[in-house]
């Protein structure tokens, strides 16, 4: 029988433990989501994050030790972004037919997202360093990290801010869209993809396939546009 202390020190050194726990936490979140009848506020990501944060806190594990294991999951965001080429390609014909609405909604949605977030944060006295992290928060997470690093923001908060945005969106989006009377699934999906990101897109796929396809288009195009305009908008507030 090995000393439990030695066993624990092995587990905290190797990536296996936290990789395993990350998947289990997400599984638990997904199970809770299904059991609730897919209620938007029982977001699987949110449940998993809360479970993991509590676990790290209870075991006194710091984030870098956790990330040793979780990095394998985190890394897959890059390939997943590349894989978005498939829904984009599958809908190229519909995109081309809806080119004009897409272009107008993309610019309007993207400028509104960046501009209003920065304006409100600036009015409420948020410091310039955090503003840099906030600027790209609508872009998809790996993109947001890259953009924010190049703007001088800290690398991790933007990913977190992006996640918050997506989660907040997944909870708050349906009511305003219903209230506004927008019935067009292309419009609903696309605007959600632009304003939120991966989580919003993942959610849109669950609601309606057309919404999901246009959400991934919105997310992809907005990634490109945000990278181009975020530095200019940010400069207005610094």
């Amino acid at each position: 029988m090995t000393d439990p202390v030695l066993l624990w020190s092995y587990l905290t050194q190797a990536p296996l433990l936290w990789l395993c726990v990350t998947l289990l936490a997400y599984w638990a979140g997904d199970t809770a989501f299904r059991a609730s009848g897919r209620k938007p506020w029982v977001n699987p990501v949110l449940v998993a994050v809360i479970l993991l944060a509590c676990l790290l806190w209870v075991t006194g594990t710091d984030y870098s030790a956790y990330f040793e294991g979780a990095q394998f999951v985190h890394f897959m965001l890059g390939p997943a972004t590349v894989a978005l080429a498939l829904p984009l390609h599958a809908n190229l014909g519909r995109v081309r037919r809806a080119a004009l609405p897409i272009l107008v909604a993309l610019v309007a949605g993207s400028v509104t997202a960046i501009g209003s977030a920065l304006a409100i944060a600036w009015l409420l006295g948020v410091d310039p360093h955090t503003l840099a992290a906030l600027a790209p928060k609508s872009a998809t997470a790996p993109v947001a990290i890259g953009i924010s690093e190049s703007l001088g923001g800290a690398p991790t908060p933007p990913a977190g801010l992006g996640l918050l945005t997506g989660t907040i969106r997944a909870i708050v989006a349906p009511p305003p869209l219903h209230a506004l009377g927008v019935r067009d699934w292309r419009a609903r999906g696309f605007s959600v993809g632009v304003a939120a990101h991966g989580i919003g897109t993942a959610r849109a796929f669950q609601v309606h396939e057309t919404a999901g396809a246009f959400a991934s288009i919105g997310m992809g195009l907005n990634a490109v546009l945000t990278a181009l305009i975020a530095p200019w908008v940010l400069a207005l507030f610094q």
């Binding site: 990350t22 998947l23 936490a25 997400y26 699987p44 990501v45 949110l46 998993a48 994050v49 993991l52 944060a53 790290l56 984030y63 956790y66 990330f67 979780a70 990095q71 999951v73 985190h74 897959m76 965001l77 997943a80 997470a141 991790t156 908060p157 990913a159 977190g160 992006g162 996640l163 997506g166 991966g198 989580i199």
Partner: peptide, 9 residues
């Protein structure tokens, strides 16, 4: 799932 590590961050 891929957003979970960043969320814990």
């Amino acid at each position: 799932l891929l957003f979970v590590p960043a969320g814990v961050g």
